[in-house]
Design a protein around this nucleic acid. Structure first.
Length: 898
RNA sequence: GGGCGAUUAGCUCAGUUGGUUCAGAGCACUUGGUUUACACCCAAGGGGUCAUAGGUUCGAAUCCUAUAUCGCCCACCA
């Protein structure tokens, strides 16, 4: 016998172990079943599980369990990500803080990587156990890690293929330089922060030089003007048109030095990029410290006489060659430079204004644009064979979404995606850190070699850089399916590897990619980019994006404010995994953020307990009746209530299955919640407390409830399943519910329920004590037969002492009364009834109904309505009208009798 | 500057293609409750002009156009 309350903690770990040992999580690439695949977004191998992971695991587990039960060959492949910069960063910080190593890089490349590996191994263990805690039914035997040898092979293969197709190139460009972490970043790894800055306006060219008005330039970064090569104006700007094409000497202040020491040559150019309205309408072009300026320079290279120089170094300080400022920080340099301008009388104004400062999404420190020789992916070169055409990476990425090869849920994110692609520039993929896949390029003097393995001779030196972490995650859906037994064989091509990998052949493209919308660009877009190119397949058919979890007040959960943070493990400990899962999955829609707080989780703990106790009740009856195996239903002898619950169950199954196929996870969860609590517990179980218990129906409905709820609350349903007589196998492997295809009379019990509800209402309105049994007279009219069959139920559930049931009769005076479905209900109260109050109530109700009747009549006499509305709606209106009229008539008579 | 989302009961949120009384749920609240599982419960109830203003339609929470407030994403006006 089950205990009185469900205590999740006592069961969950055991159940998980049993599932895992049973092999239920394992997918078979040889099976004939239709595949259903989810690649688990690999958590970073750095930390612990947070709510973002929890919601991801809950949603994906619901999807995979549903499909597995439906008979798909369901593969959910777990793994972890080496998270290059993030991980290296954490380890360096730990080494400094915990081991007192001032400069962890002094350990050398191998030494540091060994430290990182140690850390990752530990972290992966934690993550694995936490994923298990969430009940995730993923295939652990196929677990992958982005640094696995087989994945490394894929990385190198793709790099080489892209290099050979000239999609990967090496070049000097202005890149995003994270000064704190000493590495480049991709464009979308740069965030912007509003910061109040100063806009300095100063004389760039004197009146003498321009031959008219002096030329002023406004900038928030005057120090970079030391590296200017040009002045840019809008082609239509008449003020300086006559200067275009001319080159001027400009002498900048030189603290403590000779005048003329800091001389630059600038050429005036005209370009549409310049906004004549902003500032002074003139841009000082600094090619090496601004991407826009770099492009300006590229466009006007032939006109511009001087070659750019770098002012700010990789360390964030002014370059040694910049005499007078060398070694200063950017701020110090700016200060001195401005002071110099002021002294020379060239500073015109200083205005406060809000600027967007670039910061690194990893270090949260400033990002400097600096020129650097790096590896890039060309997103515009048409070198991909896609649908029989030559397309660029960009075009392919657009095509698969536009043609709906890939469906995004919710679809509004398509727009965001398109917009991102429109702005996409070549992707800088090399990073100056040690942790990651090393760039598979070797150099010997001027020679260069790109390959999947190192050249034999020691003369070759490998590129020092590693690849952007998203390079390897971009291959995730398929690199994880490559047979790791064949990836050592260097004679195989990428095509061979794909062709000879049974998992890839069976499970790719994957079915759903479920993840937070915050990594739509970082990851989803790049998987599409890389996978279409490398395999010729889309990586997934559907993208399901969930929202971010916020605190009760709508704030982001952040580690810096632990009091607002909800720790999933803590919640699991308190309320159970099932409750946590439900609370994250119900009551929100895809793509929308949701607020989570403890009371919500508690509410679903109550739900699991409700299920537990309903089951306890049913199991008790089954035991009482000596049932030891699944009973057969005698369809010839069903009560009204049996028909009602079976009908409702059919509806529920239909909604649940269709809903889940359409990924309506929240809606389905709500439907199941209501079916269990309202239909099954509040009505069917209460009705079966009479003498008409049908154990076969109780068994059947409970069984289906367990099946339907299993994807949502896998633990509690599995525990109860184990108590269900005659079920030898685990619920996880059970077939999903299907409707039985029968038609049931749902109406009869609905009438009974309505009558019971009305009587209860009248009781409580007239303040009749629950212990007090009352006499009730009912005139059933056309529903008399149904009421006769349901007499017992009415008496018991409405606590009726004496029930008089007639087809029709005189209205009873001095009674509380009501009408429902043409059924008249009277509760004689021997003058106890407050006739005035009752009158008011009836009057109000009659007025209400009359208004309604008027509305419907107007509607029905409206030619346009009759002409345009579907006939089903019109008929429905007519029926409603008749019912309402009938009810008003009866109530009016009741009023007369008060 | 561009785009997206939100605005529905005190709080957190649902509401599928416009259509029967569609204005909902949970929590909170009020009243009552030791009924053959469950107080992590049961019964009954109060509470909203669906942000605002227009429009389309026989019919709008739902579609369109503005406006307001909040939030997010993108974008180097130097």
């Amino acid at each position: 016998m089950l205990e009185k309350a469900y205590e999740a903690k006592k069961f969950e770990d055991d159940i998980y172990k049993k599932w895992e040992e049973s092999g239920a999580f394992k997918a078979d690439s040889n099976s004939d079943k239709e595949p259903f695949t989810i690649s688990m977004p690999p958590p970073n191998a750095t930390g612990v599980l947070h709510l973002g992971h929890s919601i991801m695991l809950a949603l994906e587990d619901i999807m995979i369990r549903h499909r597995r039960m439906k008979g798909y060959e369901a593969l959910w492949l777990p793994g972890t990500d080496h998270a290059a910069i993030a991980t290296e960063n954490v380890v360096i910080k730990n080494l400094k803080e915990e081991q007192g190593i001032k400069n962890p890089r002094s350990l050398g490349r191998k030494g540091l990587i060994d430290e990182i590996k140690k850390y990752v191994t530990k972290s992966q263990g934690t993550i694995r156990s936490q994923i298990r805690k969430m009940g995730a039914s993923c295939d652990w035997e196929r677990e992958k890690y982005t640094m696995d040898a087989s994945l490394h092979r894929c990385v190198n293969e793709v790099f080489k293929k892209m290099y050979d197709d000239e999609l990967i190139y090496r070049g000097e460009r202005v890149v995003n330089w994270d000064v704190a972490l000493q590495t480049t970043l991709a464009d979308d790894e740069v965030e912007y922060e509003e910061k109040e800055g100063t806009l300095y306006t100063f004389e760039y060219l004197s009146a003498k030089q321009t031959g008219g008005e002096p030329l002023y330039v406004a900038t928030s970064r005057p120090e970079t003007k030391l590296g200017d090569t040009a002045l840019a104006i809008h082609p239509k700007d008449k003020r300086f048109k006559h200067l275009v094409g001319k080159t001027f000497d400009v002498v900048w202040p030189h603290p403590g030095g000779q005048a003329g020491d800091r001389k630059i040559k600038v050429t005036v150019i005209s370009d549409h990029e310049v906004d004549p309205e902003f500032g002074t309408g003139v841009i000082g072009v600094t090619p090496f410290h601004s991407k826009v300026d770099y492009e300006l320079w590229q466009r006007h290279k032939d006109e511009i006489q001087s070659y750019p120089i770098q002012i700010i170094g990789e360390d964030g300080f002014i370059m040694p060659a910049i005499k007078g400022y060398a070694g200063l920080s950017v701020e110090e340099c700016r200060h001195k430079f401005v002071e110099g301008l002021r002294k020379d009388g060239r500073l015109k104004s200083e205005e406060k204004y809000v600027q967007q400062m670039s910061i690194s999404y990893r270090s949260k420190m400033p990002v400097e644009p600096i020129p650097k020789l790096q590896w890039f992916i060309d997103v515009n070169k048409q070198a991909i064979d896609w649908k029989g055409k030559k397309m660029s990476l960009k075009e392919t990425m657009l095509d698969v979404i536009k043609t709906h090869d890939i469906q995004i849920i919710p679809d509004r994110f398509e727009k965001t995606y398109f917009h991102w692609i429109d702005n996409l520039k070549d992707w800088c993929i090399s990073r100056q850190i040690w942790w990651g896949h090393r760039v598979p390029v070797w150099y010997k003097g001027e020679e260069i070699k790109v390959g999947i393995t190192a050249p034999n001779s020691d003369d070759w030196k490998q590129d020092e850089d590693t690849l952007d972490t998203w390079f390897s995650s971009a291959l995730w859906t398929w690199s994880t399916l490559i047979d790791s037994n064949i990836t050592d064989d260097t004679s195989l091509s990428l095509e061979d590897l794909l062709a000879k990998s049974p998992d890839y052949q069976k499970f790719h493209p994957t079915s759903v990619m479920e993840t937070g919308y915050d990594i739509l660009f970082f990851w989803i877009a790049r998987m599409i980019l890389m996978t279409t190119y490398a395999t010729g397949q889309i990586p997934f058919e559907t993208v399901y994006l969930h929202g971010l979890i916020r605190t009760r007040d709508g704030a982001k959960m952040s580690k810096s404010k632990p009091e607002t943070c909800i720790d999933p493990l803590d919640m699991i400990n308190k309320y159970g995994t099932d409750a946590l899962r439900m609370s994250m999955v119900i009551g929100n829609t895809a793509g929308n953020d949701m607020r989570l707080y403890e009371e919500k989780i508690m509410g679903y703990r109550n739900f699991t307990n409700k299920l537990w106790n309903a089951s306890r009740f049913v199991l008790g009856i089954l035991e009482e009746k000596g049932i030891t195996d699944e009973p057969k239903i005698d369809y010839k002898n069903l009560s009204d209530a049996d028909e009602w619950i079976l009908g409702k169950l059919n509806d529920t199954i239909k909604l649940a299955d269709k809903g889940l196929m359409d990924y309506k996870i929240s809606e389905v969860g709500q439907v199941l919640y209501d079916f269990l609590w309202n239909d099954f517990c509040d009505w069917y179980l209460e009705l079966s407390k009479g003498d008409k218990q049908n154990p076969a129906i109780l068994y059947y409905v409970l069984k289906n409830i367990l099946i339907l709820l299993h994807p949502y609350t896998p633990f509690v349903t599995e525990v109860i399943w184990g108590e269900l007589p005659g079920q030898k196998d685990m619920l996880i492997g059970e077939k999903y519910s299907e409707i039985d295809g029968k038609d049931y009379d749902v109406n009869s019990t609905s009438q009974i329920i309505d009558v019971i509800t009305k009587i209860r209402h009248l009781r409580s309105e007239n303040k009749i004590e629950p212990i007090q049994k009352i006499s009730v007279t009912i005139y059933g009219n056309k529903n008399t037969d149904i009421l006769e069959r349901g007499q017992e139920d009415i008496i018991r559930l409405a606590r009726v002492g004496e029930l008089t049931l007639e087809k029709s009769g005189d209205k009873l005076a001095g009674s509380a009364s009501d009408v429902v479905n043409g059924i008249e209900i009277f509760i004689p109260l021997d003058g106890l009834v407050d006739t005035e109050k009752e009158k008011v109530r009836l009057e109000k109700e009659i007025a209400n109904l009359s208004g309604y009747i008027k509305g419907v009549e107007a509607k029905l006499s409206n030619d346009n309505f009759v002409k345009n509305a579907p006939s089903a709606i019109i008929d429905g209106e007519k029926v409603k009208l008749d019912e309402a009229k009938d009810k008003v008539e009866k109530m009016k008579e009741q009023m007369k009798n008060l």
